[in-house]
Design a protein around this nucleic acid. Structure first.
Length: 582
RNA sequence: GUCCUUGUAACUCAGUAGGAUAGAGUAUUCGCCUCCUAAGCGAAAAGCCGGCAGUUCGAAUCUGCCCAAGGACGCCA
């Protein structure tokens, strides 16, 4: 158990000794630092329970607290707030423990096995700015969960199936009718064929084809036929589809690599297809399929529902399957292959109803054990300044590549030539640019929509990714200059700002716990800024390396080292890389 | 129409298991580099927390109604 949680436990015991039974003492960092470091707020709520005045209760608790040598400056304020402060010695002692082993500042949460579905990339379709959110949050959530004890498998769950891909293949057929893929007499090996199409072409073909399908009935019909051929593994068509997936996947992987987003599993929707027969059997045996308007559906509405809950379309009236069914097959696939305790879906909140239907159908069919937690981790939409989903000036969606490039141009201008060698400028600028993007995306709570502005992401000063990188690099540089100095122990916390830093450090476990419970990273992003800016203030006020008082210098170096290690730990959780210099 | 989400400083956002004086960044104004990276530090100014009522010792936070914006609501994924 972490130091801060232990402290809380001790305080519960003290309150019990004072004669009051309490589960949550409401022990927290004070928002009135002038009165004390921490506050205990339970006296007011205990008042009703015990029929006494809150101040009397606070006074009883105060008497017990005073017996504990770790606390000082205990006082009661207002209706019954108890303010306490830790002694300097005790605070320094705790910081030494964190310095010795950072694990005393982290609480494990669970050792459940989780499959985390994030990314949301579609084959042959450019990643756009909205994909940043899923990739970012998903990856960070995975890293956070692992730190707190979970075993997590990240799955890209590629959109590689369905009619859009049929249209892409159709359009390629229109443009390159002589390709052997469309020659039924061709008997050679398709894998040896050079396709005259790059990912850039695919990204252009996709919107063209889907627009044309909307306007042209005959084209639509042809597209359906091609889709059917792909899904039934018709030679040539199926092979071309595989080739497209391959080309597109390589490109998608490259961008994810740049973003420091890595998947353990690169399953696609198509991989779940082999589980369809078994899925159908399970649903038939569960006897929950009914026919409606020519389709096979599962009624998932319950009498308690007050909100819209349409039936799940298991098999569409034209005999094809819906993406609800694909998601159900994927649950089955995951159960068989990985047997997880939980499956988390990091998806746009607009898809929540869809997943609610899928989860209900899975429960009705007893597809997966009742103990397995199926959970949606929804994130908000990136909107433009008009409050509508973000579009570029020409009405298109801005690609993630373009956004990265835009920010890159800004960071490149600011790389310090005195510290970064010429040959490293570009790679450093890219790392800084991506840090700026990712951090800006983490700051708002995941569930709410937020307004996308290029200027916000390209901002390099203030509460930004570059600020954090700059500060961490400065700490690292300082520590490397202190290599010759033997520093091991924190002896003294000399000033208010040093104590503030110490308190922030000790509060880390609460932030991590809150973050994993909310499955949001904004508290971690906020905490990083708080800790780092407190440190920068301290850094600005003191000249550490030239300090004559050795005990003080040693303490300052320990403080620097602890802040540095927490910063690097948290940046790594957010999937933000730190360059050597900038 | 039904349901969900949101409304906090000029802008973008935190804060919502009720707690003391509502925070941050940006933008604005003013200070700080002979010394560990100034992408830094400090200061000032900026608010009827959408509105009205209620619950409570105490409400940005909970409840009700209203106003405004966005989203979802069976054969696209």
């Amino acid at each position: 158990m972490s130091l801060i949680k232990n402290l809380e436990k001790d305080i519960i015991n003290i309150i019990n000794t004072a004669g009051y039974n309490v589960v949550d003492p409401m022990f927290q960092l004070s928002n009135r630092p002038d009165l004390g470091q921490y506050q205990i707020n339970c006296a007011m709520s205990l008042a009703k329970q015990y029929g006494k005045s809150p101040r009397d209760i606070a006074s009883d608790i105060e008497k017990e607290l005073e017996k504990d040598s770790r606390f000082t400056n205990i006082n009661i304020a207002g209706p019954g707030f108890i303010n306490i402060t830790l002694t300097n010695d005790y605070l320094a002692k705790m910081l030494n423990m964190v310095n010795d082993d950072i694990r005393v500042n982290i609480d494990k949460k669970s050792n459940n096995k989780v499959i985390l579905d994030y990314g949301g990339a579609n084959v042959a379709k450019a990643l756009h700015v909205g994909h940043l959110r899923s990739a970012n949050i998903g990856e960070a959530l995975k890293r956070l969960a692992r730190l707190l004890g979970y075993e997590v498998l990240g799955d890209a769950h590629l959109g590689d199936y369905g009619r859009p891909l049929g249209f892409v293949v159709l359009e390629i057929k229109k443009r390159y009718p002589d390709l052997p893929y469309f020659d039924s007499s061709y008997t050679g090996d398709y894998s040896e064929i050079e396709l005259p199409i790059t990912n850039v072409d695919l990204e252009q073909i996709y919107p063209y084809a889907s627009l044309k399908a909307k306007e042209d009935e005959a084209y639509l019909e042809e597209g359906r036929d091609v889709t059917y051929k792909i899904q039934n593994h018709v030679r040539g068509y199926y092979d071309l589809w595989k080739k497209i997936v391959e080309i597109s996947k390589a490109d998608i992987k490259q961008i994810y690599d740049d973003l420091n987003v890595h998947f353990e599993l690169w399953q696609g929707e198509s991989d779940a297809m082999e589980y369809m027969p078994e899925l159908k059997k399970i649903f038939e045996e569960a006897n929950i399929l009914t026919e409606s308007e020519g389709a096979q559906i599962v009624e998932v509405k319950t009498p308690e529902d007050t909100s819209p809950m349409p039936p799940l379309l298991f098999i569409k009236s034209n005999g094809t399957i819906s993406y609800e069914t694909t998601d159900l097959a994927t649950i089955l696939e995951r159960k068989i292959k990985y047997n997880p305790d939980e499956i988390w879906y990091c998806i746009d909140t607009r898809q929540e109803l869809h997943f609610a239907q899928v989860f209900r159908a899975a429960r009705l069919a007893n597809l997966i054990s009742e103990d397995v937690n199926l959970e949606v981790v929804g994130f908000g939409t990136m909107n433009g300044k008009d409050g509508k989903p973000f579009k570029t000036r020409d009405g298109g969606v801005m690609s993630l590549k373009n956004l990265i490039n835009l920010v890159y141009e800004e960071t490149l201008k600011r790389i310090n030539p005195a510290t970064v060698p010429e040959e490293e400028r570009q790679s450093v600028a890219k790392t800084v640019a991506i840090a700026a993007l990712k951090y800006a995306d983490f700051l708002p709570y995941r569930g709410t929509d937020y307004i996308f502005e290029v200027e916000k992401f390209a901002d390099l000063e203030g509460k930004t990714g570059p600020y954090l990188l700059y500060s961490v690099i400065r700490m690292k540089s300082l520590l490397s200059k202190a290599k010759e100095i033997n520093y091991k122990n924190m002896h003294i916390l000399n000033s208010d700002i040093e104590k503030d830093i110490a308190l922030t450090i000790l509060n880390l476990p609460l932030i991590l716990t809150k973050s994993i419970e909310a499955k949001s990273l904004n508290d971690i992003a906020e905490y990083l800024y708080k800790l780092t800016s407190q440190y920068n203030k301290f850094y600005n006020e003191n000249k550490i390396l030239v300090e004559d008082n050795e005990k003080l210098r040693e303490s300052w170096l320990v403080l620097t080292k602890v802040v540095y290690s927490i910063d690097t730990l948290l940046l790594d959780i957010l999937g933000i890389r730190v360059p050597e210099k900038m």
